[in-house]
Computed example of a mutant assay.
Amino acid sequence: MERPPDDNPELTVTADTATATYKTKVTAAFNGAAATYDRLGVEFFTPMGRRLVERAAPRPGQRLLDVGCGLGATLLPAAREIGPHGYALGIDIAEAMIEEAGREAARQGITNVELRVMDGEHPDLPARSFDLVAGSYSVIFLPDARAALARYARLLRDGGRIAFTSPVFTKDTFPFLPPLFTRWIPLSLLEHLPPAWHPEQLHRQLNSWLEDPADLEAALRTAGFTDVEVVDESVDMTAASGEDWVNWSHTQGMRLLWQHLPEAEAAALRARLTEALDALRDAEGVIHIDVPVRYVTATVAR
């Protein structure tokens, strides 16, 4: 959501209240989803996180910050790359996510990781203390992501880099989902969402600076970055069944829609998606969905 001009105190208070409410709801949603998040027979965030680490290319001994680390899909492979003499800090607004990520790090025997509950939009961390800031499907969803980018620039050492992922936004596809789903999920269903998530608001918040790579590059340069690279690649999302994917979607970008759909429409959509996805099974019974993902890297301009 866009912040109003600071010279109007009344509007500023309203925006601050709306932002606080939004973050409270997001925190509650991810706390509730942490136990099953990305563990419901669907693979997406893990391969995307690994690919982001490959593109970010952290080096042994570096210091890494992962914003909105979730269960560690980016944090943990990056921690392996920087090795025992490096330091990886994962922050997330949801305490349950931090707890689950800690358990996963211990399970994998990764010991150079620290995890903290922290608001990724306003990280309370020392200036120039990291070599790399990463954020997979996290940074761009902050209420004022463009302002946060400038804060990350201040956290980076000279020559430090930022690396993050974003959906490839277009005006004619259902928000946060691959184009394939436009066949099955009519955009008219968005009318059930709260006003802040209606198409025109989503376009203002996300598409207005993320849809065109030139706008994204301009935002990063304004925030203090240079050598911006924007690359779109497909991630092979896999699902064990249509039902698994639908269950998984209740913990991801579609969760708000599921929460607001009338019961009959939700049941109809669930049945339609399950049937359509099951029709995509390959010879081994696995569903493969190409998901366009935008990988963004840049270097701090000092």
Rank of each mutant, 00 (worst) to 15 (best):
R270W: 08
F181S: 09
P199S: 11
G49W: 01
Y295A: 04
P199E: 06
P5H: 13
G86K: 00
G70W: 00
A283W: 07
G86C: 02
G90M: 02
A28G: 03
T170D: 14
D124A: 14
R107A: 14
E95S: 09
G68A: 07
S129N: 03
L65D: 02
I98T: 03
T165Q: 08
A279L: 13
T74R: 00
F176C: 13
L71P: 02
L156G: 00
Q259I: 03
S208Y: 07
I82H: 02
P262D: 07
A153I: 07
T182E: 12
R255L: 04
R107N: 14
L216I: 11
V113P: 03
T21A: 14
G109I: 10
I287R: 14
L189Y: 13
V53E: 05
M97K: 00
E265A: 15
V230L: 10
R146I: 11
R128F: 05
T19S: 09
P179Q: 03
P84V: 15
L125W: 01
D38Q: 10
L64C: 00
E104Y: 10
D7M: 08
R221M: 14
G90D: 00
A88T: 00
N112Y: 08
G72I: 06
P77Y: 01
D278Y: 09
S234E: 15
R39M: 08
T222P: 04
A56R: 01
P143K: 04
